[in-house]
Write a protein that binds this DNA or RNA. Structure first.
Lengths: 212, 212
DNA sequence: GTATGTGAACCACTTCACAGCA
DNA sequence: TGCTGTGAAGTGGTTCACATAC
């Protein structure tokens, strides 16, 4: 692939891909950047520019073939395969993740789960046997996984993340409320509803003082 | 308040606030933008510039008083009060949210919960009585809440969000996998782990093809 | 006629670099 | 001397606007 593609662009592609999957399910054959943009709250120019990093998928005067573009995006993002994930932390949050039905249909499956507590080690949750986190490194040496999910308390999250990195994991989904450090080449995304709430309150506060 | 403050800045403030709370708990009295930046993976200049939108909180040659800056940020963000939230959707995800212990310590409490299914309506979960979503508008007219949490299936999420907006809700945390549309003045943030995963796979895929 | 693809113009955010203050 | 606060410079991303193709 040629030059560096902005990370914001990569983050928008799954949004496009999802919208296209919806359109496909509805039986739509063609969509314009205009219409797609309206659905997603993005400008048409944004969509066209984003797609142009990867090729020319549209037909002038017509728009984009939904199925074709959908498949292209899925391929670009690597969504046309299955990704194996390891979960660290099987407390209430981790258990909810194991039971969550939203990953599998998208090709993401948890294949290993670890915890430090004897209360859960050995139990089978969501079809996965919970193992002792002390066996993590050894186990991951045998059974390669692609992605790590961190659902441990904040106090030990960085330590767990360091271990995952040592195991060669290159992508981490972090549910722990910390600003985790990872070396270059390792990708990390945080899922942190409290942070989302805490930035929205800024605007709520302003509104109370002014209008409304 | 003077000119428009970039939204990215607002989104970073809670991160700073959290780090400062940690330092405070550790008994630290002073911190430099340098040190804070290292902890958070942000440049010192970024932190100083961000803070400068709101005032002058530091002392040249010394740094920032941890407690003082922490309190300022909490006040700026409106974290020095409690925020009432309404949850829509009490399926597995919604129940996990009701049981989640991470909101309350930060001043966010779910005070109302609604669902459409007779299986949960009337039940008490996490101390909250689940009500019929058909009573949502009426109930919110009596009992004002600040924030809406949407944990319903994608198919009905936009409809629920529209209702919340009609009720005068100005901030929404959306767990449903849709690109929701809200009118100007309403703030919405999404919590969408699948989207996070789907953008990371782009990089995993590239690496497989190249190095590693 | 209509909608894409894309250089160029624009805008916003980040980083620099240094004056100013403790 | 050390670190903040901040205009100015730099960078990166978005939007424009139009040539191009169907």
């Amino acid at each position: 692939m040629p030059i560096e593609i902005p990370e914001v662009v990569i983050e928008r592609l799954p949004v496009y891909a999802r919208a296209l999957a919806d359109l496909e399910a509805q039986g739509r054959e063609v969509v314009s950047s205009q219409e797609l943009g309206e659905k997603l709250g993005v400008t048409p120019a944004q969509i066209r520019k984003d797609l142009s990093y990867f090729g020319r998928f549209g037909k002038q005067g017509r728009g984009y073939n939904v199925r074709r573009l959908s498949e292209h995006l899925r391929h670009i993002l690597g969504l046309d395969r299955t990704w194996d994930m390891v979960l660290i932390g099987v407390g209430p949050l981790g258990q909810a993740i194991l039971h969550y039905g939203g990953f599998a249909p998208q090709g993401f499956r948890v294949v290993e789960a670890f915890d430090a507590s004897p209360a859960v080690i050995g139990r089978t949750i969501g079809g996965i046997v919970v193992r002792d986190v002390r066996d993590l490194k050894q186990r991951l040496a045998e059974r390669k996984v692609d992605i790590g999910i961190v659902a441990v308390p904040a106090a030990v999250a960085q330590e767990v993340i360091d271990t995952l990195v040592e195991c060669g994991i290159k992508a981490i989904l972090n549910y722990a409320p910390i600003a985790a450090q990872v070396p270059p080449g390792v990708h990390i995304r945080r899922v942190d509803p409290v942070l989302e709430l805490q930035s929205m309150t800024y605007y709520l506060k302003s509104q109370d003082g002014a209008a409304k």
